[in-house]
Design a protein around this nucleic acid. Structure first.
Lengths: 229, 229
DNA sequence: TCTACTCACGAACACTGTTCGAGTCAACTG
DNA sequence: CAGTTGACTCGAACAGTGTTCGTGAGTAGA
């Protein structure tokens, strides 16, 4: 029994003493990572989503996450997938196809707005995600039953989803009303000589409560579709 | 003459020796920073745009930039402003207002595509930038002369600019054809039971050469405008 | 009981944006 | 002409980022 084993013996005893119940830490899973990440984004925004912070919330180090998730980008995709799984696509109804599209887009919008800034991940996400494809599939069915040609439908879906992501991203950036008041004040300072139309319609430019702008843009797209075939 | 001054004396002599022509380094200006940043983005993309790399290209340290630029976000704004200054807005022509809008959007699109990924900065940029407001002003004039109501014009401009940014951002992410072939292959692997429409129209979904999708979406918006007033 | 094998994770690496404070130089002022 | 002011430069550092490596612990199978 040499010196070294004496030390080991001592540490063993010490461990015995100070570990009454380490309680077998609950194992890390992809699901736990995703839900932790989502609550983090919901509370503090997408910029606060950090491998380190997710790991800390799970009471571990960042290295532990990489056994379940390839990348941060991979994690972002998982989040978008989870959000997409929360929108329900209705069975196509030829009479109400426009409203159905608006409904799906509205659901997606609300999901994105609930997690501020996450739309950036949606813009960066690869389009071959299974969960987002489910939405594409559903929209495609709705468009086709509405009499839209496959070509137009495909491109329209692209445009519509792009708009939803862009809209929600912008919305979550420009957060509150103070920002809006500030911008109005700045717009009023513009010289009317160089910006005649902007100055004249400054109030109109900033109008639009709730999601009026959102619906307006989407209806524009859909109405154009109906006329163009 | 103590020890310290001897050292100073020595370093003075050494400097005299080794500085035949330090050539008075050209001073850093906002303009030099912006052009340096733009060439960097053009060559390596927006993700490579780093204060350190800009500083290195100017043969200095990152701290030197902060005397001319408040933030990295501030630098991003300057870049967007510079790009916006490169698009020329035509004098409104009631007969051709739709084509004029498409023209302006096309210019903006080409500017953004030339500097891959910079559209993200456009999405994050505050809307009260003087240079982007010049474009808004121009578009507003075109819409109004085309008989569009101020309300619709304001919202349509928002939608159109948002679409341009989103489109160019996505385009510069999904870079080349290998990516596209890969995605096509993946789409073909989908089970037709769950994704009937996607599988059936897989080729249509990925069609669209050049900027066909771009023009399609914008025309949809503008045509809808014409009918909706 | 011994051996694989998967998972957890401390430590480190190479980055990032940003600040501080000391130093340098040009231009205005008395 | 001397002196001071104020703008500019920039080395060093700080706190934070994503990611990898190697070690170690625990479980499952032979």
């Amino acid at each position: 029994m040499n010196r070294k084993s004496r030390e080991e013996w001592a540490t063993q005893i010490a461990e015995l003493e100070q570990k009454p119940a380490p309680a077998r830490k609950e194992p890390i899973t992809v699901g736990r990572i995703v839900t932790t990440a989502l609550t983090l984004v919901e509370a503090e925004g997408f910029d606060a989503l950090t491998m380190r912070r997710v790991a800390a919330a799970l009471q571990t180090g960042p290295a532990s996450l990489y056994a379940h998730v390839r990348n941060k980008a991979d994690l972002d995709d998982l989040l978008i997938g989870t959000l997409s799984r929360n929108v329900s696509v209705p069975a196509p109804d030829a009479e109400r196809w426009r409203e159905q599209v608006l409904d799906v887009c509205g659901q997606l919008r609300d999901q994105f707005l609930r997690y501020p800034g996450i739309a950036r991940a949606a813009l960066s996400a690869p389009p071959a995600n299974l969960d987002t494809l489910r939405i594409t599939e559903g929209l495609l069915g709705i468009f086709l039953v509405g009499g839209v040609s496959p070509q137009s439908a495909a491109w329209a879906i692209d445009a519509v989803l792009l708009y939803v992501s862009g809209y929600t991203y912008e919305s979550s950036l420009r957060g509150g009303q103070p920002d809006r008041a500030e911008m109005l004040a700045r717009l009023r300072m513009l010289p009317a000589s160089r910006f005649p139309h902007v100055v004249e319609h400054v109030d109109t430019l900033n109008s639009g409560e709730g999601h009026e702008r959102f619906e307006f843009a989407l209806r524009l797209l859909l109405d154009g579709l109906a006329t163009a075939g």
